Amino acid sequence: MEIIPGRDIVDRLQRFLPAPATVTITCLPHHGPSETVDLAVQLAKLGYRAVPHLAARSIQSRAQLAGFTARLEATGVRDVFVIAGDAGSADGPYSWSLPLMEDIASLSGLSIGMAAYPEGHPTVEEAELTGLLLKKQELATWAVTQMCFSGPVLATYVDTLRAAGVTLPIWAGVPGAVRRTRLISLAGRIGVGPSLKFAQRSGSLLRNVVAPSSYDPAPLVHAVSEAGVFAGLHVYSFNDVERLGLPEQ
């Protein structure tokens, strides 16, 4: 499950998604990598399998990166998820994800995850995206799709990647039972915008995403499971951990 660093998130995780659950932590421009790493370390000490996101454009130097990787490994963190990041310009030497992945691999034994884009990327052509995935899979060990609301779109995308030579395990990025208002308000901050545009082109999806008070992911989860091509689910929670459907601890 993916969370955003924020107030009370650790307490709420312990109540509604106790350790040793796997939790990934976003790295958004307004809080930066230090807050992400701090939270990952805290969760790892509490027994979670913490997976911090490291955004290339937010890393200030190779020395800072070395400090992050050493600290994470010392706490028992085994994985990091590497993205270019949403910042408009780079704070240091990394303007995109591949050089950051190369330095992480040279500095540590951390397993590296990368992002995949079933609905494309606003600034990169599809052919270029696939080529980049092929290059990055030499360093990565798994991939997670950006959020998508369509099981067939996700499954077709995996078939396309396999045909192109991408062999990594792929986790399907799906929304949790998120409140409608929160899903829409945070859409642009975690790459949900393209998926909402896709939903708006489908009457049934539009009713499921926009009309109810909260999104029901059950049909999508069933479709992903039926496809049989994914390593598992990566759930975008938007910190609505109370709506996961698990009993409070």
Rank of each mutant, 00 (worst) to 15 (best):
P52V: 05
G131F: 07
A90L: 00
L233P: 03
T123M: 10
L186E: 13
V178K: 04
L17F: 05
L107K: 06
L129C: 14
A143G: 05
L183Q: 05
V235G: 00
A199E: 12
G113E: 08
A227Q: 02
Y157M: 09
V158C: 04
L100K: 07
A74K: 14
V82P: 03
S185N: 14
Q200T: 01
M147E: 00
T26K: 09
E102N: 07
R179L: 09
R179H: 10
L54V: 07
S150R: 10
G245V: 02
T26M: 04
A211D: 09
S237N: 03
P52M: 01
A187H: 05
F198P: 00
G188Y: 10
L54I: 15
T69G: 04
K135I: 06
T160V: 11
V174T: 14
G193V: 15
R78F: 11
Q64N: 09
T181L: 13
P99A: 04
A155D: 02
D103I: 04
I59P: 02
I4E: 07
S58V: 00
R179K: 12
G176K: 11
I104M: 05
G113V: 11
G6Q: 03
L39A: 06
P93Y: 01
L161K: 05
Q146N: 08
R189S: 13
E126H: 05
Y94P: 06
R57E: 02
L233N: 00
A44K: 12
P194G: 05
R243W: 08
E128R: 12
S214V: 04
S108G: 12
E35F: 01
V124M: 14
G151A: 15
S204F: 08
L183W: 00
L246Y: 10
K135F: 00
G85Q: 01
Y215W: 06
G203T: 05
R78A: 15
Q200H: 09
R71M: 04
V124L: 10
L134E: 03
K197L: 13
